[in-house]
Write a protein that binds this DNA or RNA. Structure first.
Length: 737
DNA sequence: GAGCACTGC
């Protein structure tokens, strides 16, 4: 018996007070008796810290460790710290954690906290998780992409039996009270364990300033400020937390609040005479860390703190002492739109469950109040009950490649807790095929196996592997790293700073000839790496040093993975002569040929992906203003605001993508449908074929008309774009159609 | 001539 197991007699007093303690024995019993178990309980029930300890002390991990997944890094680290402390063991030994760039565990670690992404990586290396006896998926109600994939994988692994394992793996899913019925039935109606929470009541009030008709407007900033000020003047002492959607709004709201709070006469206007001032603090992710830290400082005596935050304050950061919430009812969300083939960042109403989550932030240390600026009508008509899980609204290319590499061939009928739309899956398959990651029959290729090793989106991986084959990875590794961290260019809210930042960024652009945004990223990376005082250089040039630093770590990790893969004897190898700049651009084409556009009318460009969307270059690009000299471009991403903008742009030559472009139009959705279902039994295939045939017949005429119309449209747009402006490529390109 | 939430490998 180890030191920690013995410590069961001397359990922490604090732990015994937790609601979960009452049910300790029943819980252990339930885990022993069931392959699957759902444990539900609100914040403060102690499930995250206590359950793994109970199971450990009960000796349930003598044949394999307990893995506990979290959607966020900080959570994994802090919980592991606390549990190791409670058990009286050193962190990293019996109790440890693993997150990207930080592995604090050993072979002997028996309780291992980790991010869901790390667990997914472990499954890729060892699909039957032979080292584990129990896997606990925590915060399942958040429905993060990785947790959702794990939910399905663990169901599938276990339903296959315990092959490759001595004893069957046990799965415990921990979630807030929502959706437990759904989880239970997903795992064959397994038992649900409910643990009472320990939070304070929060009174909720609708302020009726926003109704269903105001769904699309952005004037709610004014309303939010009004409510926050009402709270400040009428409510007893206690801090305020305001939820808005982004940096711009937050800065505007803070300015307004400051103006209004300044002219308040605290002697007469403020109801609670102990409140003598208002401290206004913005909070959003791209803010410098030391500025973020100020949020946690208690306000001086008599002063009320008012934090104006993005959704970062809903789960990632917990601020003590909040008694009042002002909820705008909106959130900024990245949604994949498969109709136009773009990811779009948009402001949408939050769900009812998210509104409750926000309200709950007021009841952590005492009773609180939540003021919703919208009406009950808005609540009923505009807000969905639950947030659509990430797996149903993001691009699935990476996920599908992972599943394929794990031997899941029928990616359409994989056991998803919530199925993504079929066309999302088909789009992902199409992309993987275009990258040569899967073949026509849906099998993972040699290249696909290499691609899955990298913690990068497939387009960047493809470009990186091309560069590695040509032996010029030293230029693509930094670019890939810089593109996978947060935005590195500082864009200040105040006009004076904006001018200054713009000038500095233009200088960097000029130093690389202003020719391409990817090259500019490479330039910043190399300048910082070569500099003795990189942080000073960044400050001077309005660059986020924090972001560049994380790009350094990413680059190191990518480089290590690449070096390992290059040891394999059949690693692709090609030769090429040309300048560095040219090499970089050609490699990028391999990853971004799905994002090719050709200049059409004036300064606008026409995409070549079959959608024929018209886009313009974003003013933040170093190519902005040089459109008339450009012909063909590739772009990293799209931003839809007042117009459809492409950002991070690179000019290319048509010859570089000429042979790649036909791939975009080559494969048919029906073909992919059958590819996706390829590994199913003949009988099932027959049934499906018949159903599809019936469906096709039923809507045959309508479909034929639509199909025809769409083809004509696409064809004409394509021709239009190709032939516009007499740039000499029209004839060659036209031959492809 | 504009304005990019939050995670994660």
């Amino acid at each position: 018996m180890s030191k920690a197991e013995k410590s069961s007699e001397t359990e922490h007093h604090e732990s015994k007070k937790l609601p979960i303690y009452q049910q300790k024995d029943k819980l252990i019993q339930a885990v022993k008796e069931n392959a699957f178990l759902i444990v539900t309980g609100e914040t403060g029930s102690g499930k995250t810290t206590q359950l793994p300890q109970y199971l450990y002390k009960a000796g349930l991990c003598r044949k394999g460790r307990i893995g506990v997944t979290q959607p966020r890094r900080v959570a994994a680290i802090t919980v592991a710290q606390r549990v190791s402390h409670e058990l009286g063991v050193r962190l990293g030994e019996e109790v440890g954690y693993q997150v990207r760039f930080d592995d604090c565990s050993t072979q002997d670690t028996v309780v291992k906290y980790m991010t869901d992404g790390c667990m997914l990586r472990e499954i890729l290396a060892d699909p039957s998780l032979t080292q584990y006896s129990i896997v606990i998926l925590d915060e399942a109600h958040e429905r993060s992409l990785n947790t959702d994939v794990l939910l399905g994988l663990l169901k599938k692994t276990l339903s296959k039996g315990s092959h490759g394992r001595k004893t069957p793996l046990k799965v415990v899913v921990m979630s807030a009270t929502l959706e437990t019925e759904k989880l239970s039935s997903f795992y064959g109606h397994c038992p649900v364990f409910t643990i009472p929470g320990r939070t304070y009541p929060v009174k909720e009030k609708f302020c009726n300033l926003i109704g269903p008709k105001d769904k699309d407007s952005s004037f709610y900033v004014k309303e939010v400020v009004k409510v926050a000020l009402d709270v400040h003047t009428n409510e007893a002492a206690g801090d305020i937390l305001v939820f808005l959607t982004g940096q711009f709004e937050i800065e505007k709201a803070c300015d307004l609040l400051f103006e209004k709070a300044e002219i308040l006469d605290y002697r007469y206007d403020v109801h609670d005479q102990t409140v003598e001032g208002l401290l206004i603090l913005p909070l959003y992710g791209s803010m410098p860390t030391d500025q973020q830290r100020q949020i946690f400082q208690p306000a001086p005596k008599g002063v009320r703190k008012c934090v104006v935050a993005t959704n970062i304050a809903a789960t990632s950061l917990t601020i003590d002492g909040i008694r009042y919430i002002v909820d705008s009812g909106f959130v900024k969300q990245l949604n994949h739109n498969s109709r136009v083939g773009l990811d779009i960042l948009e402001v949408v109403p939050i769900s009812k469950s998210e509104a409750q989550q926000r309200a709950g932030r007021a009841g952590r240390t005492s009773a609180g109040k939540c003021f919703r600026i919208y009406s009950k009508d808005f609540w009923d008509k505009c807000m969905p009950d639950y947030t659509i899980p990430e797996i149903q609204r993001t691009s699935l290319t990476s996920v599908i490649l992972t599943l394929k590499c794990l031997g899941v061939h029928d990616v359409i009928r994989f056991p998803y807790l919530d199925c993504p739309e079929e066309r999302f899956i088909l789009t992902a398959l199409k992309q993987l095929y275009q990258y040569d990651a899967i073949d026509r029959r849906g099998h993972v290729t040699r290249l696909g196996r290499l691609m899955v090793e990298f913690p990068l989106p497939p387009n960047l991986t493809r470009a990186l592997l091309k560069a590695a084959a040509l032996g010029c990875e030293d230029i693509m590794l930094p670019v890939a790293a810089m593109l996978s961290v947060e935005n590195i260019f500082i864009r200040p809210g105040k006009p004076e700073g904006q001018k200054e930042a713009e000038i500095r960024h233009k200088e960097i652009a000029a130093s690389v000839g202003g020719s391409n945004d990817f090259l500019m990223l490479l330039c910043v990376f190399e300048k910082c790496r070569a500099s003795d005082h990189p942080s000073a250089w960044c400050k001077e040039h309005w660059i986020h040093w924090r972001a560049v630093k994380s790009a350094f770590s990413v680059e190191t990790q990518l480089s290590e993975i690449l070096q390992r893969l290059k040891q394999q004897k059949d690693f692709p190898h090609e030769t090429f002569e040309g300048s560095r700049n040219e090499l970089l651009r050609q490699c990028l084409c391999l990853g971004y040929f799905t994002n090719v556009a050709r200049r059409s009318v004036g300064k606008s460009f026409c995409t070549m992906d079959g959608h024929g969307s018209s886009v313009v270059i974003h003013p933040s690009s170093c190519l902005f203003g040089q459109e008339l000299q450009l012909d063909w471009i590739i772009f990293h991403d799209v931003l839809v605001t007042s117009r459809v903008y492409v950002r991070t742009v690179c000019p290319i030559r048509y010859e570089w993508v000429k042979d790649l472009l036909p791939k975009l139009h080559e494969i048919d959705v029906y073909e992919l449908s059958s590819v996706a279902r390829e590994e199913v039994t003949d009988e099932e295939m027959d049934k499906w074929e018949k159903k599809e045939a019936a469906k096709r017949q039923a809507g045959a005429f309508e479909k034929a008309v639509l199909h025809f119309a769409r083809h004509i449209f696409v064809y004409m747009t394509f021709l239009f774009c190709l032939n516009r402006g007499h740039r000499g490529c029209g004839k060659e390109a036209g031959e492809e159609e």
